[in-house]
């Protein structure tokens, strides 16, 4: 009897807790709802999470620019392949493509701290830069602020210890990359940098074999080209939860099971008649 009473008490206590918790959640939801309702934006990621994204909008009634997966949040369908793109700029080997037929989505828009790089810290002023001098060796000096802003920099997973920051980032213009001749190139044109080492991949990319292009399929048609860093994270191309060179992502929903099959493991358990 005593035990029962004790259990009842626990149950009552839990119920009370739950109702209060639920009420709190509801309150929170109610508080969030008016704030979240006006924009009603659906943003989906394109190739990998954390790189380029598209915001859903209607081009015509019932004809959106993109459809997003409700399960994973990935872009599932393109109505307008050129959404938010700019001309690619000069690219050696692509002279045959008519002007304006090669477009890219600027990477700089997605890199939040990029505008600050060359102004806030790497601005060429301060005791370390007066007179301007470069580090003696290629061992990166741990700078807590830098590592805080960019955790990948702590243990660079690219080049297996053979490369460091300034092999890719320009020495004096830190918001730019370096091309073959050491000249600064825009961060929107990483292919000019990556092709220095990965020449075979760049050749295939230029011909449309490696990487991804969307738009018109004719070889001179207008295409949106996906640049290197839209699919690969340059600071982490080696390790992590990856297989076959790709960071693992959640798959979309599986197809319907055939009639009579209860679950995907059914055959393993029950066998099949041949």
């Amino acid at each position: 009897m005593k035990k029962l009473a004790f259990h009842t008490m626990i149950l009552a206590f839990c119920c009370g807790m739950m109702t209060s918790a639920l009420a709190q959640e509801q309150k929170a939801a109610a508080a969030q709802a008016p704030a979240a309702q006006p924009p009603q934006e659906t943003v989906c990621f394109e190739s990998r999470k954390g790189a380029s994204e598209v915001t859903k909008r209607d081009l015509q009634p019932g004809w959106p620019n993109v459809k997003c997966s409700p399960k994973t949040g990935a872009a599932l369908w393109y109505g307008d392949p050129y959404d938010g793109t700019v001309p690619m700029g000069k690219m050696p080997g692509l002279e045959k493509i008519p002007e304006g037929h090669a477009v890219v989505k600027p990477r700089s828009e997605k890199l939040a701290i990029l505008p600050m790089c060359a102004t806030a810290c790497h601005n060429g002023v301060g005791p370390a830069f007066n007179p301007p001098k470069l580090p003696k060796d290629k061992k990166p000096i741990p700078i807590p602020t830098m590592e805080g802003l960019l955790p990948d920099a702590k243990d660079l997973q690219h080049g297996r210890g053979r490369i460091w920051c300034l092999d890719c980032h320009h020495t004096t213009k830190r918001n730019m990359l370096v091309d073959n001749y050491g000249d600064p190139v825009s961060i929107d044109q990483p292919q000019l940098l990556c092709g220095k080492c990965h020449g075979d991949k760049m050749r295939d990319w230029r011909d449309g074999i490696h990487g991804k292009r969307i738009g018109e399929f004719a070889s001179t048609g207008k295409k949106r080209w996906f640049t290197c860093t839209e699919c690969h994270n340059p600071h982490n191309v080696q390790d992590g939860a990856r297989n076959k060179g790709f960071v693992q992502i959640a798959p979309e929903a599986p197809p319907q099971l055939p009639k009579g099959m209860k679950d995907a493991k059914y055959e393993r358990v029950h066998g099949i008649a041949h």
């Binding site: 394109e46 190739s47 990998r48 990935a74 872009a75 599932l76 369908w77 393109y78 392949p81 449309g208 074999i209 490696h210 990487g211 991804k212 292009r213 969307i214 738009g215 018109e216 399929f217 004719a218 070889s219 048609g221 996906f226 699919c231 790709f246 992502i249």
Partner: peptide
Amino acid sequence: QGRYPACVEVCPVGARKFGN
């Protein structure tokens, strides 16, 4: 109309290729 098929445009790893 000259566009790529839908599956080509959506492949996140660029495994799908289409052309003439």
